[in-house]
Simulated assay, not measured.
Amino acid sequence: MTKRALITGISGQDGAYLAKSLLAKGYEVHGTSRDRETTNFWRLERLGVRGNVTIHSMSITELHSVLHVLKLVQPDEVYNLAGQSSVSLSFEQPLETMTSNVIGTLNLLESMRFFGSRGRLYNAASSESFGDVGGVPAVIGTPFAPRSPYAVAKATAFWEVANYREAYGLHACSGVLFNHESPLRSPRFVTRKIVAAACRIAAGSGETLHLGNIDVQRDWGWAEEYVEAMWRMMQQPEPRDYVIATGVQSSLRDFVREAFACVGLDWQDHVHTDPALFRPSDIASSVGDPRVAHEELGWKATMFMPDVVREMVRHEQAMLAGEEGAPGMPES
Rank of each mutant, 00 (worst) to 15 (best):
A5F: 08
L6V: 04
I7P: 01
T8K: 01
S11W: 01
D14Y: 13
G26H: 14
G26N: 15
Y27S: 07
E28V: 14
G31F: 07
D35R: 00
R36Y: 00
T39V: 05
T39N: 06
R43S: 02
L44M: 09
L44W: 06
E45H: 10
R46S: 09
G51I: 09
I60E: 00
E62D: 01
K71V: 00
N80C: 03
L81T: 04
Q84F: 04
Q93M: 07
T97F: 01
I103K: 05
G104H: 03
N107V: 03
L108M: 08
G119R: 09
S126N: 08
S127R: 10
S129V: 11
G131Q: 08
V136R: 13
A138I: 09
V139K: 15
I140D: 08
G141D: 03
P143L: 03
A145P: 00
A145H: 11
S148K: 08
Y150A: 03
V152F: 12
V152R: 05
A153N: 07
F158S: 06
W159I: 01
W159K: 11
E160V: 00
R165M: 03
H171Y: 14
G175E: 12
V176N: 10
V176K: 09
S182H: 09
S182P: 11
P183C: 05
P183K: 03
T191S: 15
R192L: 12
A196P: 03
A203H: 15
S205T: 15
G206C: 11
N213G: 01
I214K: 09
A223S: 15
E225C: 02
E225N: 07
Y226M: 10
V227R: 06
V227H: 04
P237N: 14
Y242T: 11
T246H: 11
V256A: 02
V256R: 00
A259K: 12
D269A: 13
V271C: 04
V271M: 04
L277N: 04
S281K: 08
D282W: 09
I283Q: 04
G288Q: 14
V292F: 13
A293H: 14
E296K: 15
L297M: 14
W299M: 11
K300Q: 15
T302A: 11
D307L: 01
V309E: 04
V309N: 03
R310Y: 01
M312A: 04
E316L: 09
Q317T: 05
M319E: 15
L320V: 13
L320A: 10
E323Q: 13
A326H: 11
P327R: 03
M329L: 15
P330I: 14
P330Y: 10
S332Q: 10
